[in-house]
């Protein structure tokens, strides 16, 4: 049998033929018992391959979901089918990623602008806020001159590397400049500080950054943390979660 016939049979079996092609091929099948037999063998083989795939798939689902006991057969099966399992799990990951991201590109950007409101900034009276460079930066920030604000604030990091107020506003500033990775970096530092008053603020904005980065899963879990806690962002976080789970 040559490849041409093989491909033809496959197109027929997978329903990829036009009506005309199909009729013609069926006629051929009727007239040629040899061809009929080849087709049946091909069908039997592809069915067996599929069944084998499904068997493996079901075993692996069982092992993941319900497998508290080990079966000898499974270990051998796992060894033998590691490549296929790996392929299957890659396929699964791709599928999962696709399911998560397929129609989120536009909506997430929309959600971001719907929920994002820039923090108003601080009156410059306390702590680091009495620092002259910080105050200058804050004035620029309030005026919407984010590049300028950055020029005042970045050098301050050397002096106050762990200052949460500085980190927070730098994070927001980077967000305004659409430098999302840096934004996420600084906001996360604040979000991890148990004692910081800005902790929840940082979490909230961090979830919005993640949304803009199309990291829907991460945004989801950050928002869940906010929504489970009593804080000023709880209601917003819950509302955004609802929207996210709908699209």
């Amino acid at each position: 049998m040559n490849q041409e016939i093989f491909e033809k049979i496959e197109a027929y079996l997978q329903g990829r033929m036009s009506v005309e092609e199909k009729e013609q091929f069926q006629q051929q099948l009727n007239q040629d018992p040899g061809l009929q037999k080849i087709m049946e063998e091909q069908l039997a083989l592809t069915n067996a391959i599929e069944t084998e795939g499904l068997k493996n798939k079901l075993n692996s689902i069982y092992d993941h979901q319900f497998g508290t006991h080990k079966q000898k057969g499974n270990v051998i099966f796992l060894k033998r089918f590691r490549p296929i399992l790996a392929a299957a799990s890659v396929a699964l990951l791709v599928l999962a990623a696709w399911l998560i991201f397929r129609n989120t590109e536009q909506p997430n950007e929309q959600l971001f602008s719907q929920y994002y409101e820039r923090p108003a900034g601080l009156p410059t009276t306390l702590g680091i806020q009495t620092n002259e460079a910080f105050s200058e930066g804050m004035i620029e920030y309030k005026l919407g001159n984010f590049s300028e604000a950055q020029q005042f604030w970045l050098p301050l990091l050397a002096q106050f590397p762990e200052n949460d107020t500085l980190q927070f506003y730098l994070g927001i500033n980077y967000l305004e400049l659409s430098q999302l990775d840096s934004a996420d970096n600084y906001l996360n530092k604040v979000a991890e500080k148990e004692e910081s008053k800005l902790r929840m603020n940082a979490k909230w904005y961090s979830s919005l950054v993640q949304l803009r980065q199309e990291k829907k899963d991460e945004a989801f879990s950050t928002l869940s943390e906010i929504a489970l806690d009593t804080n000023p962002f709880q209601a917003q976080a819950s509302a955004l979660l609802e929207e996210l789970s709908e699209n």
């Binding site: 592809t46 391959i49 599929e50 084998e52 795939g53 499904l54 798939k57 490549p83 296929i84 392929a87 299957a88 396929a91």
Partner: peptide, 12 residues
């Protein structure tokens, strides 16, 4: 094995 599984089972 992998090619056949991908094509016929996973329908890639």
């Amino acid at each position: 094995q992998e090619i056949l599984q991908r094509f016929y089972f996973a329908k890639e």
